[in-house]
Amino acid sequence: MNETIGSLLIGIGVAFDVLGCLGLVRLPDVYNRLQAATKCVTLGTCLILVGVAVAAAPQSTAMVIKALLCTGFVLLTSPVGAHALARGAYRSGVPLCDQSVVDEYAGSEPLRGYRAASTATVRDREQTDAKAETA
């Protein structure tokens, strides 16, 4: 019984992980990739860890405690890390993709990242590369 429920949770978690990583590859800019991948992979990993806790319950109490502790840590730290990364990406000057509709954060803080000193943004460099390829 425990094994069945654990396998089910692990299977759902792996499905979420695969979908999140597909989003990481397919979506157009760093912010989209970050939100798709972080949300899906956090939920997927938490489901896998809960599944491990359920499946290991008849054999070992230590595994259950550690798996649930790990679930809590992942649930707490992963969104915080993703938020910091998104802020770092924005303030280092990575542009939004062309389909973006609104940029509420624009102009609220000056850029100060590793790219702020140079005037060329990523999009400028991509356009230059595209021109070089067509020429």
């Binding site: 992979v41 990993t45 790990c70 770092g88």
Partner: peptide, 20 residues
């Protein structure tokens, strides 16, 4: 890539996958 934050996101997600 194409930018450094993209690589950082990849590293972050890879760490979570390794936990699982």
């Amino acid at each position: 890539g194409p930018s450094a934050p993209d690589r950082a996101v990849g590293i972050d997600i890879l760490g979570t996958l390794i936990v699982a």
